[in-house]
Nucleic acid binder design. Structure first.
Lengths: 242, 242
DNA sequence: ACAATAGTGTCTGTAAGACAGTATTCT
DNA sequence: AGAATACTGTCTTACAGACACTATTGT
């Protein structure tokens, strides 16, 4: 693995977080306004550099905690999306970043961190539609992460991570619709969700809303993969048609 | 993205390659015998450190060229598998590695590189069954990469990357069987492959073997995703039953 | 009663798995 | 003719999409 005659690139390693939630029926991403150069004042993904002794997941969890105030109790899973390594992606020098994806239920309003002027949720589709908004190559990272999330919802039970327990089947359907960006047939959705063993678990309780029949409440099941999978039709895509 | 008051970890970035091929009807992985400490004499994945000015894909292609003598002409695609960052994964110090996956048709016998005593194909199942063979955390990387390859064969046309053009449908079936580790029904396989538009393209030629009816020859089609996908049944897995 | 939301049932097409049979070559 | 490999067709079942209907609440 070594080749001592050759120079090794000197790089800094960072982690960037794509924290997704469903708000107002839309998929939203947590972004911060940068307080330092470069890209001061521009929107960017939360993230930070790896510290000595840390591995990447540790860095990711720490940054998540610092930026949103939530830990593993609220976010069941952090998923690695990929590494971004273009030599000129950061004007300060060689910075390679590893992107992580987190699915969050309705979180407390984000509080700005020490190096961020502001923190806010912005709709994912705004970023994907006009990919020149974010600092660095964060637009690309967002696109990759959202596609990753779409794919995960097909095969894993991670959609429940967007919901606060307990949740209704309607809540869960809203998650799929927001992430995939397509309307789903609620009747077929019911059938598929109930057929998938271990996806959701009835609590026996009901939640009354202002009007209409109260909905049954569920909690996450034990399964992590859905069988049969919840497939989007191939034409569906979260990206706006070109 | 910066937090100047805190120390940043000093790490070196490496790329490791999981180069897969199908040989003797089995999925095989290119490994090298290490010529330097640590793990001198142990088997490991080919790989190397990123050099100044390179991004990760460039490093991966360069290492691929150095280790196997083949370039983009033979390997249509390099796929990023993930980052491995445990602080003590390398006894020399902090080394974070990004794993890449390459699917190769029958290559010339691998030639040892400058830092490798030897290079050879070893069956993937041997490594997965006894995950204590390779240096560093390369057993883990192999497991992740093979799983990645299995998943890619379901949804993409990358199985053709294992075949030298032109190939027969029987050749393609052998690829799926070797990677997934399960026997497939050739009649159903024919149907699925021919239904998937743009997967393979008839050349009109035939290949006569020693005995039996000559097989029709095909080349890769233009599609990159298979629709409908070639799904393995959920019970199937390349990993040996526990 | 009526609006609004929650949930069930049915019909139909597509594709998957299982399996029987036909075609083309060489010896 | 027979062996060996290549290929095609059919039957059944499972699941997806589309759509009509019933159930339970509040006003």
């Amino acid at each position: 693995m070594e080749r001592p005659k050759e120079a090794h690139a000197v790089v800094k390693l960072a982690v960037d977080l794509v924290i997704l939630t469903v708000l107002d029926g839309r998929l939203q991403i947590l972004v911060v306004e940068r307080g330092n150069e470069p890209y001061r004042g521009r929107l960017a993904l939360p993230g930070g550099f790896m510290r000595p002794g840390e591995d990447l997941p540790t860095t990711a969890w720490r940054e998540l905690q610092e930026e949103t105030g939530v830990g593993p109790a609220h976010i069941p899973h952090l998923e690695q999306v990929g590494a971004y390594s273009e030599p000129d992606r950061d004007p300060r020098g060689r910075v390679v970043t590893i992107a992580y994806l987190a699915l969050a239920p309705d979180l407390p309003a984000p509080t700005p961190g020490s190096d961020a002027l502001n923190a806010a949720w912005v709709p994912a589709h705004d970023i994907l539609a006009a990919p020149t908004q974010l600092a660095f190559d964060h637009d690309t990272i967002v696109a990759d992460a959202v596609e990753h999330a779409c794919a995960m919802l097909e095969h894993t039970t991670l959609a429940t991570a967007f919901c606060t327990t307990p949740f209704t089947i309607g809540d869960l359907k809203s998650v799929y619709e927001a992430v995939w960006g397509v309307p789903l047939d609620i009747r077929n959705f019911y059938r598929k969700v109930r057929r998938a063993d271990g996806f959701i678990e009835a609590t026996g309780e009901k939640r009354a809303s202002d009007v209409g029949r109260p909905a049954e409440l569920f909690r996450r099941g034990l399964a992590t993969v859905i069988n049969p999978p919840m497939l989007r039709t191939p034409a569906d895509s979260v990206r706006p048609a070109v």
